[in-house]
Simulated assay, not measured.
Amino acid sequence: MYLIAGLGNPGKQYERTRHNMGFDTIDELVDRHRIPGSGVQHKAMYGKGMIAGEKVILAKPLTYMNLSGDSIREFINYYKMDPETELIVIYDDIDLEPGQIRIKKKGSAGGHNGMKSIISQIGTQNFYRVKVGVGEKPAGWDLADYVLGRFSTKEREEVDKAIEEAADAVEVILREGIDAAMNKYNAKKKQ
């Protein structure tokens, strides 16, 4: 079984913000695979189902971004999962342009507070990630204001395509493995 966790912040005021790329990608996977909601458990909204022949739990932690690790740790402990092979985290990345995605097997938090929380709580940085680009913050902007802001109409079109591509990438990870997904999606350059 895989835990696929999309990072974001709960509440209407955060919907469709840059920081909610993980939530948006989970919503895409839920719609695409008709994953029924199972309610709230382990500080997350979640659903269980099948994707690409694999049992999955799709989770949106309700802890707010900076405490995402609390929820993910609870899932991993409860279901006795190996985070190094059974956890996929989807989140926003300011180092990628809007519309780009990047798949990684492991790595540091890279300054992302949600990822810092997860690494701290589960005790490893060796887990799969799907990053969705939101673009670099403009000079003079506060980072929190930027990531909690919304996209321009043009950027939103590109980001919506990237969310679909991130969902595709999760399917490839489940069906063919992380290396296949990295080869397919990391080689792509924005046109």
Rank of each mutant, 00 (worst) to 15 (best):
G22V: 06
Y2R: 08
E136V: 10
I103W: 07
G133F: 11
L7Y: 05
K12E: 09
E171T: 15
I118M: 06
G53F: 05
G37W: 12
M1H: 12
G99T: 04
I26T: 06
K48L: 13
G149N: 02
H112D: 04
A187Q: 11
I4L: 08
P61Q: 07
I51N: 11
G8R: 01
I118F: 04
E86R: 15
Y185M: 04
A139P: 15
Y64F: 15
S120F: 08
D24C: 01
G49N: 02
I88W: 08
A169N: 07
V147Q: 03
I119M: 10
I119F: 10
N113P: 03
A144T: 14
M115V: 14
A109K: 01
P138A: 14
G114I: 02
D145P: 08
G107Y: 10
L67G: 10
A144C: 02
A187S: 14
S117A: 05
V56M: 05
I119R: 10
E164M: 11
V134S: 03
K106V: 03
G49Q: 02
I72N: 03
V172H: 07
V132E: 11
F75H: 04
L96W: 05
G114R: 03
R102L: 13
L96T: 07
A167L: 12
S108E: 02
V132S: 09
P98W: 00
D92I: 14
G140D: 08
P61A: 07
H112L: 03
E97Q: 13
V40K: 15
N126R: 15
H33I: 06
D27C: 01
P10L: 06
E165A: 01
F127C: 00
E157I: 03
Y128E: 05
Y46Q: 11
S108K: 03
T63G: 04
N77A: 11
A5V: 08
T153S: 13
S120E: 15
V30D: 03
S152K: 07
G111T: 00
K161F: 01
Q100T: 00
L148V: 06
A180I: 09
E157F: 01
I90R: 07
G11E: 02
R102D: 11
F151Q: 09
I57T: 14
V159N: 02
K43I: 00
I51A: 10
R18L: 00
E28I: 06
L174E: 12
W141C: 11
A44Y: 02
F127G: 01
E15K: 13
T17V: 09
G110W: 00
D82W: 02
G135Y: 00
R18D: 00
A180N: 09
D95M: 03
L87I: 14
Y78S: 02
Y146E: 09
T124V: 07
D145F: 10
Q121R: 14
V40P: 04
D145G: 07
E136N: 14
P61Y: 06
S68H: 07
G37N: 14
Y79M: 00
F75K: 01
R18C: 00
P138H: 10
R129T: 09
K48H: 12
D145S: 15
H19I: 02
D70R: 13
G133W: 10
S71C: 07
R175L: 13
I35Q: 04
D160Y: 03
Y91T: 15
G135D: 04
K189L: 12
